[in-house]
Nucleic acid binder design. Structure first.
Lengths: 216, 216, 216, 216
DNA sequence: GATGAATGAGCTTTCATTCAT
DNA sequence: GATGAATGAAAGCTCATTCAT
């Protein structure tokens, strides 16, 4: 089990930095070693391979994100409050760990087949947690029943991730809480079952079933 | 005029395929050439470099996406109908061009600094189009005024992209129209100004200003 | 005999320019074509190959140099006057055709085996002409008999070529005629048999036979 | 400290061989590696690039030549004796290191702009040393005052280099010491101030100021 | 435990040359 | 006579990985 770092965690931290700056393929072990202040061989002494190092990084990140989300969920009972908290936590996490945000989005999510295992972990971890909340909400009648929870959870994850990345990269004039506020505003209201909706199962705006019309 | 492909567009199409399968860095020109059925030199005869080929691909894709969105917008007058159409078109586009979807998300968006120019094009093209609709909607009173349009537009883009990619990659049991329906359901209702909201400017659910609480 | 240029001689002139600027190996046919304002294929229509083009250039240059030298020789009878004229002509030629100077020295002379034929032409043309003058001078008693004419001719060629190149490249404060004057001063006096020398066959300064002493 | 060779210097020696045989542009790293008996990567581990390797070679050579010349100069007091020794040493050096001779002449001197730094080193090293001797000789009255020392030094360098190369490449029937003897004979007598010259400052043979007459 | 010299497969890119038009 | 699209061999260089110390 060579996967554990040495003393502190210089290699680990250095790797996160470099990987997130340059992406997996453009990161050289040489640079990680240099940034960590160790010899190149040392990295191979601690991690099986470049890929092994990367995977260790990613999994650690997913676990942390999952933990954060679950912690926030555990602190609340009500579904709506939980959703609010999830979005805040999620967004904060990406804001604090821009590195992970980039890696998760660009390397892991985008090139699915190459990191299948890790994508699966994302889907069964953080996204599943969100999904569960939505399902409980549907059962309790506070979440609309005409949305498909799986897609909604993924959409929420995607919206937060992409928005966070955008905010981090091009931090415009909008403040952090404004952005989070907007996200919550859209998603909560979008998912919430209003009093008036409870009896009808049809969407508010009667759109047609989207018969794949648009081409290029 | 070296930038234009030859007769049909075998190199172009082959490149999209391979790039989207393996990502930019893991794609070898050799493989593109082989897939296109031309010699390696031919690619360099038509495109300045590997990066040049990639950029040509991306920009073409962005333009097409923008066109699709603008076409749908032009066909409608009302903001809500436009938003619906945009989501459908957007989702359909990514569904039909899974390759672009992957490239846009993983290579271009995720590694912002390496493709700055192209990211900017995305932001000033498709995303800007969505943003404009939202702004007009706010002016007309049909879109909530307490959401920040820039973030909302990015969030919509991200939600559609990530969901589309998820759907494409792990196409579960959910049908295409269900997913699009869900997206529309969430975003439309999430952004729409309800009759009851018109007089109050405060959000439905009184959440706190998100004081950056969550750590790791 | 594809070796002859077309109408005027744009390809030829362009080739001289580019070859002398970049050397043989670093010159691309593409650039020659562009500088000549013709298509790449046209060069291959007129010259068998890159090497063929280069050789044609070099031989033309050697012929011109030989002609210049022979013309100056033919105009004079006396050996000393001929030598003076040869040095002037030689130096002038290199000054006016810096391109050839560079090509001759760096490509042809320096990499003997690759252009054997052309080096031979140099040795049997211009250098031979100088050598003949020296031989006639020795016969007439105006050139010292203790110098070996072959080496002396080569040394003169080398001194002029390297000095000309140096002058062209780093044209310092010294004027053209000063440099030529210096060259002539050294070589003429160095080769000339002085009145006092006529009876003794020994060198002025009694140096030892140079028993290959110096190492590294 | 990547610039220093490994143990002995197999790469270095192999590189000198191949570069001098084929010239810079026609030398492939593959061949150097093969000749040195190491893997291609090893060369890049020890030298930054092909150009870096070449430059290291050249500079080493220039330094050695300079050392040889300076050593011989230091052993003597008198200018004439020094000049003799310089020519002998110079010629011997090129004879023993035919490789350097070729490289210096063809690559470095001929294509000045590409190796500017190294050409400058040549000019400020070995050539400058010769020049200094000539200047001291002029001051002491043993070297003619009507020659320009800079040009004379370059001419001497060129004559020796080109003659040495010629001798090495086509070693005719003339013996080493004959050639060196000839060079010394010409240059010493050519530069030396004869007793008779001391009072007159005009050249022996009253040549005209060389009004750039010769064309092509 | 840690190192870093050595490796070699694999990559992008260049360019002399050909040939159908 | 001229063209220029297409070719493919060959080059410089990178870098994950190994292993003797």
């Amino acid at each position: 089990m060579k996967a554990a770092p040495r003393r502190g965690l210089p290699i680990f931290e250095a790797a996160v930095q470099v990987f997130s700056e340059k992406g997996f393929a453009n990161t050289s072990i040489d640079e990680v070693a240099q940034r960590a202040g160790v010899a190149k061989g040392t990295i191979y002494y601690n991690y099986r391979s470049k890929k092994g190092l990367f995977v260790a990084l990613i999994e650690e990140g997913i676990e942390r994100l999952e933990k954060v989300i679950n912690r926030e969920l555990a602190r609340r009972d009500e579904v709506i409050a939980q959703l609010q908290a999830v979005i805040t936590a999620h967004f904060s996490f990406f804001d604090e760990h821009r590195d992970y945000c980039r890696l998760l989005l660009s390397e892991v999510w985008g090139l699915g087949h190459r990191w299948e295992k890790q994508v699966e972990r994302l889907r069964t971890g953080p996204i599943r947690a969100i999904r569960n909340v939505l399902e409980r909400g549907q059962a309790a009648g506070v979440i609309r029943r005409d949305i498909e929870v799986e897609s909604a959870a993924v959409a929420l994850f995607g919206a937060v991730a992409v928005t966070a990345l955008n905010w981090v990269l091009f931090q415009g004039r909008s403040r952090f809480d404004e952005v989070a506020h907007t996200l919550k505003g859209i998603f909560l209201r979008g998912c919430q079952a209003h009093a008036a909706d409870k009896d009808r199962e049809t969407p508010v705006n009667g759109w047609e079933p989207a018969a794949r019309p648009v081409g290029v």
